[in-house]
Design a protein around this nucleic acid. Structure first.
Length: 489
DNA sequence: ATGTGC
């Protein structure tokens, strides 16, 4: 098979890091010489360079094991694969047995996507666009909407996620704007991954957010955040799977909105705390794992593993509710400006999280200390809705999972970065709308450099990234969402 | 990812 220069360079880089690669039918099957004999599955779009550093990080991840028991059993790289700052490549999926690696999820716990459709045409939307934008700028950037809650409600948020938080909210004097739409919010719980509820615990939350009594005013809740996070108004441009789109309530020509955000400072706090705790628990006398990705062993330290998963769940619950509030703020303003329109949830899912994996062993569904950590990768179980954004200002895809076992039922979480933020923002670099790939997209932000750093031109084109995942049987396309207006934190 | 850093 004829191979491009990029590909040859890539294969050499892979072999330097102990990865042996077969390239066939546009997919790479990779055998990985890791101490754990872990397998690897790598899927990359042709014609785009992938940094050797990302593969070094993948090989390193596959080699992690705990002296007290626990190892990596399988790794994957999704086609938006690129190096990560914290030693783990974005687009990595890692399956572990008998251990978890807190640093593999890192700080951005339950970063994820949420999409709604809106019964409004583009023309109707544009007529009152200015008023709507001013109201949203207030809510997202200046906190005009009061999202205070009682101490009890805030504690329920961390412990139970969406359902427990909603129940508690109903009984408190605060949060009137959530209570006013309680029935719809409750009815949408089954369209959130895991019902928006994980087994958290109050004690892992930042102290100032869990007082014994009184009121909590959390400036982080209902905010977009930085990096690649955004909230975007879109149009359902094309429906490619009519039956599934109908089931999900998605129709061509409708307006839609999509949210990309996570657990903000709470994830940073909990992720950072456990990076330190995992280091402190590393057995004395053993060399540190590269990039300091310290695992926690079930056999050596069952309590620590339980606590970490509980702490991660605590931040994840906050992430689910942050996205819910971002959506609810927007939905309320839509109704305020455009009348009593429907804007139902399509789906909400995380792409940065550790989940216990159920396996079928001897015909029985079991959980045997086996986890899958997805770092910038979506779960994509059979029939499950998946939201894959390109970047802000680029087409987002609603796809349906195919449960591809080689990829631990996963899909990419985006297109993958092509140019660093620094590269985009340096002086003399391209700045016209055309060069940024932002033609016809209205970017609302308080900081102009964000518009440049996160422009579509900083990312790979999304289409080949989707195509190769369809070919590999990971997902199939349901609908495409074309951006109109982006709120950028 | 993070009221970040070049």
């Amino acid at each position: 098979m004829q191979q491009s220069k990029n590909l040859q360079r890539l294969l050499r880089a892979l072999s330097r890091h102990g990865l042996q690669v077969n390239y066939e039918n546009r997919t790479y099957s990779v055998s990985l010489q890791s101490v754990n004999a872990a397998t690897a599955e790598v899927l990359l779009p042709e014609g785009f360079p992938v940094e050797a550093k990302a593969f070094k990080q993948l090989a390193n991840l596959a080699n992690i094991r705990h002296p007290g028991g626990g190892c990596v059993t399988h790794t994957c790289a999704t086609p938006d694969f690129h190096p990560g700052d914290a030693g783990v490549a974005i687009g990595s999926v890692v399956q572990t047995k008998g251990m978890v690696i807190p640093a593999a999820v890192g700080s951005d716990i339950n970063c994820g996507m949420r999409s709604h459709v809106v019964d409004l045409t583009l023309e109707q939307f544009l007529q009152k666009r200015d008023r709507f934008v001013e109201l949203m700028k207030g809510d997202y950037f200046f906190g005009t909407r009061d999202v205070t809650m009682t101490a009890k409600t805030s504690r329920a948020l961390f412990q139970y996620g969406i359902p427990g938080w909603l129940d508690e909210m109903l009984d408190t004097p605060t949060g009137s704007f959530v209570k006013s739409n309680f029935d719809q919010l409750s009815g949408e719980i089954d369209r959130v991954y895991l019902g928006g509820s994980m087994n958290g615990a109050i004690k892992w939350a930042p102290e100032e957010l869990i007082p014994d009594e009184g009121v909590v005013r959390d400036g982080g809740l209902g905010t977009i955040g930085g990096g690649n996070h955004f909230v975007e108004i879109q149009v359902v441009e094309a429906v490619e799977d009519r039956a599934t789109a109908y089931l999900w309530g998605v129709r061509e020509g409708q307006l839609a909105f999509t949210i990309h955000s996570g657990s903000r400072n709470v994830g940073k706090y909990i992720g950072g705390m456990w990076r330190d705790l995992a280091k402190a628990a590393w057995p004395k006398g053993y060399p540190y794992p590269d990039y300091r990705l310290f695992p926690l062993s079930v056999e050596a330290n069952p309590e620590l593993v339980r606590n970490y998963l509980e702490a991660e769940a605590t931040a994840a619950n906050y992430g689910f509710i942050n996205r819910l509030l971002l959506a609810e703020l927007l939905r309320l303003r839509l109704r305020e400006v455009y009348g009593d329109i429907e804007a139902p949830l399509v789906y909400d899912l995380p792409h940065n999280i550790t989940l216990g994996e159920k396996r079928i062993t001897h015909g029985k569904l079991t959980k045997e200390d086996l986890w899958v950590t997805r770092k910038g990768a979506c779960p994509a179980h059979f029939g499950q809705p998946v939201i894959i954004p390109g970047s802000m200002g680029a087409t987002s895809y609603l796809v349906v999972g195919k449960g591809n076992q080689a990829f631990c039922s996963s899909a990419s979480h985006g297109a993958g970065r092509l140019k660093s933020r620094f590269e985009m923002s340096r002086r003399g670099a391209i700045h016209t709308e055309e060069d940024l790939g932002l033609i016809g997209v209205d970017c609302i932000t308080l900081r102009e450099e964000r518009r440049i750093e996160e422009a579509p031109a900083a990312y790979k084109p999304i289409q080949p990234v989707i195509d190769i995942q369809v070919e590999a049987g990971m997902v199939s396309v349901v609908a495409k969402l074309k951006p109109i207006l982006t709120f950028k934190g």
